[in-house]
Amino acid sequence: MALSNSRPNGNATVAARLQKELMDIMTKPTPGITAFPDDENMTVWTATIDGPAETPYADLVFKLSMEFAPTYPYVAPTVLFKTPIFHPNFDFSGRICLDILKDKWSAIYNITTVLLSLQSLLGEPNNASPLNGQAAELWDKDPAEYKRLVLARHKAPEDLDA
């Protein structure tokens, strides 16, 4: 990340940038995705993703946390699933294996694109580099068992808050 340290006064710019993103999300909401800052310093957000239809995740809602470094958007945000999820590319702690959140990050991405990528990853897991081997295996072999495990692991956001 050559650019990562090149911005002085990072906190002020990141807040301004995030505020603008928030405004964009609010004026042009994307269905199935929401995001909102946790408090006024804007660097920690909570987001929700609706599971894509016709996948084992249909009708489920997932909560995520996003944390932005002062150098955002030159470095990727740290994204974690707060809702327990059964998926080849996410581990049981909610960590995510997704290239654009790692080495493929680019400053042209934003919160909406990250969330959309994660939403599509739900329906099309990348079984080549699984974090959860069992899930990767079951995905092709036994969709019924896979679905059962997804539902068993899932918790509604309300339960999560409690």
Binding site: I25, M26, T27, T34, D38, A47
Partner: peptide
């Protein structure tokens, strides 16, 4: 009003 509505919904969805 629309924007504000979206804000409130987003806020309540994500922050409880």
């Amino acid at each position: 009003k629309d924007v504000y509505t979206a804000f409130i919904v987003g806020m309540l969805t994500n922050q409880g």
